[in-house]
């Protein structure tokens, strides 16, 4: 779990162009400036190539927090 967070944090910093971002399980789109539907997709596709996984549209609907995002990433890596 923590491994994934530590891998995700730099991705978040890069996408949102802000070096002070510290994400945790409960972080939501509202907590980060500039996290809108467009940057969200940028984020998703960067995460996909980083972990070498493929999300489905259905997964996207379930990503309400960074925590739920990590759970889905874990599932994808496992399978």
């Amino acid at each position: 779990m923590n491994d994934i967070i530590s891998e995700l944090n730099p991705i978040f910093r890069k996408i949102f162009n802000n070096d002070s971002i510290e994400i945790n399980d409960t972080t939501t789109a509202g907590d980060i400036d500039g996290w809108d539907s467009l940057t969200h997709l940028d984020l998703i596709s960067t995460i996909e190539s980083h972990f070498n996984i493929k999300f489905r549209l259905k997964d996207l609907a379930k990503m309400n927090t960074v925590g739920s995002m990590i759970i889905i990433i874990q599932e994808k890596i496992a399978s």
Partner: peptide, 21 residues
């Protein structure tokens, strides 16, 4: 429109970055 048309489409085209948008 964004939830049911734009997002699915944009998601499918996510590799094309800005062209996809």
């Amino acid at each position: 429109l964004f939830e049911y048309i734009f997002n699915p489409l944009n998601f499918t085209l996510r590799k094309s970055k800005k062209a996809g948008i």
